[in-house]
Amino acid sequence: MADQIRVNSDPRAAVTGDSVKPIDLRKRPRIGEIIIQTMLYACGFISIFTTIGIVYVLGHESLAFFASDEVGLVEFFTNTVWQPQIGEFGILPLVNSTMMVTVIALIVAIPLGLAMAIYMAEYASERVRAFLKPVIELLAGIPTVVYGFFALTFVTPWLREIFGRDVVQIYNVMSAGLVVGILITPIIATLSEDALSAVPSGLRQASLGLGATKWETAIRVVVPAAFSGIVAASIVAMSRAIGETMVVALAAGASPQFTFNPFLPAETMTGHIARISGGDLSYQSIDYNSIFAIGLVLFFMTLILNIASRMIVRRFREVYE
């Protein structure tokens, strides 16, 4: 090897009279390191391959769907009827219910989650926060099927009590949306809390030193300074709401309808995929292929949201140094 270095003599040896052991500085192979590195590298690639695999399957089956002469791209995106039995494949009713659930969920979750985050970051004592944060995270760990039953057996009866049984159907978008909202609140709360806590305390002191109250400081200084983080949190929560399946499958009903009335049943994209793939459809049928096309649309919706959130974070990130 060319880069061998051997240090044999130490100048101090002459002074102290000690004999100094030679130090070997040559490169040596570290087998363990190499194995670990390779494994980590492989793990990184697994996620990429999985994504590529998903896109491939979705794309392949969707292609078969669009290639059939029963449906065209334009019809798929503009038709407001989804009834595979009679050959109507318009995705709008499904997208519309997904968006309704998502909007209702966000209307619930953004104020609630942000309020929790502000309380934890600005008001709670260290002890309260140390207790509260794990509890909120635990909330995010409850199986969604439990939330689904909560919607069906608690929220829906309650809605029907308030608005009347003839107005609110047993299966309805509102109940599903509200519960999905509760489900994504912890996401907004914990991510926003991280963003708020990251705001330098110097800004709080500056504000309080000018005679602002705690609340004014939180709302006018800390929240705006953490704005990008809060938006990112909301977008993550939004993708979660769009993808949420179990709650909508249980509470929103199983009839793809194009309606803006949140008290009527409607089926979301995910709910529909779950129902159809759970049923006994034969492979290669057009119905079967159709759910891949829906899946592809879902995939792109969340992809766009992720990209948007990254862009927003980058664009609005404040540099404090």
Binding site: A206, S207, G209, L210, G211, Y320
Partner: peptide, 20 residues
Amino acid sequence: AVQVRRSIGMVFQKANPFPK
């Protein structure tokens, strides 16, 4: 204390302008 700070202002060691 909030009223007090309105009459007695403070400038800190590290400049801390708001991100505004």
